[in-house]
């Protein structure tokens, strides 16, 4: 142990530097006055100001947020139901197919998910005329489909670790299933649902490839906008945008960490 600890310590130091130096450098250069993104031209906050005046960025960010909130909410409802189905309904027809379909989106390459959903939307449009155009609704459906898998996994592990006797007692005392679900089960699993919602929200905000497939002309999410800009190289206003995202997310995660650390003991892995 002792002999290896110098090696382990340096591995840790190197690893964390590897993870955080790029992020730090983006934040540092976002305050660079020069238009050349990597040549230092003095301190300035002008890129943040330009970002605020850029309608394309604001529109894309607003669309992304709307999709993320809607799809995360839908995914939480569907994923929670799926988690309940997997843990509480032990026998039903096609259970194997169901559990395979629930976990597959977790490992499916994004290009395949995106392509298959686009082909579905195109076929549906031919058959029933819906969706007439692709954009908010199709991206939301695509994001719901892959992120409900994450919610289901989180909820399922919470349910599996939970004491079933409370629910059984409520049922024995004559509680109707809906009442038991609302009064007993949901309050017990809501931390997992909240974690699942946040995960789904982040995954939706993060997704580029699937959204690129299923969106139509004119509807650009924030990652799509960023991708179209950074294809051409590093630019200072994207540095500013990236810094805002990094700071915002870090603050959120730290806050969540501080809150859950004081809360009742629950598994830290989500």
């Amino acid at each position: 142990m002792k002999r290896r600890s110098a090696f382990v310590l340096s591995a840790l130091a190197f690893g964390y530097a590897f993870l955080y130096v790029p992020l730090a450098s983006v934040i540092f250069y976002s305050f660079n006055d020069s238009r050349l993104a990597t040549v230092w031209g003095g301190f300035s906050t002008r890129w943040y100001g330009e970002l605020w005046g850029n309608d394309q960025v604001l529109d894309a960010a607003f669309l992304s947020l709307r999709i993320a909130v809607t799809s995360a909410t839908l995914a939480t409802v569907l994923g929670t139901l799926a988690g309940l189905a997997l843990v509480r309904v032990t026998r039903f027809r096609g259970r194997t197919l169901f559990s395979a379909m629930i976990t597959s989106p977790l490992v499916m390459p994004e290009v395949i998910t995106g392509l298959s959903l686009l082909l579905l939307f195109v076929s549906l449009q031919q058959l029933v005329g819906w969706p007439a155009q692709r954009g908010f609704s199709t991206i939301t459906i695509a994001h719901t489909t892959f992120s409900m898998a994450y919610v289901a996994v989180v909820v399922r592990s919470r349910l599996a670790a939970m004491d079933q006797s409370l629910e059984e007692a409520a049922m024995d005392l004559g509680g109707r299933p809906l009442r038991v679900l609302v009064d007993i089960t949901l309050p017990l699993i809501y931390p997992a649902m909240l974690a699942g919602w946040l995960l789904a929200f982040t995954l939706s905000l993060d997704d580029l490839v699937i959204a690129s497939f299923v969106s139509g002309p004119g509807s650009n999410t924030l990652p799509m906008y960023i991708f179209s800009k950074v294809k051409l190289g590093v630019t200072p206003d994207i540095n500013a945008l990236a810094s805002l995202v990094i700071l915002f997310v870090s603050a959120g995660v730290l806050l969540a960490w501080l809150v859950t650390r004081r809360g009742p003991g629950q598994p830290g892995r989500t």
């Binding site: 982040t202 960023i226 950074v230």
Partner: peptide
């Protein structure tokens, strides 16, 4: 939790 795309961009 930080955007994948932005981390590659970094």
């Amino acid at each position: 939790w930080i955007s994948f795309l932005l981390r590659v961009y970094a």
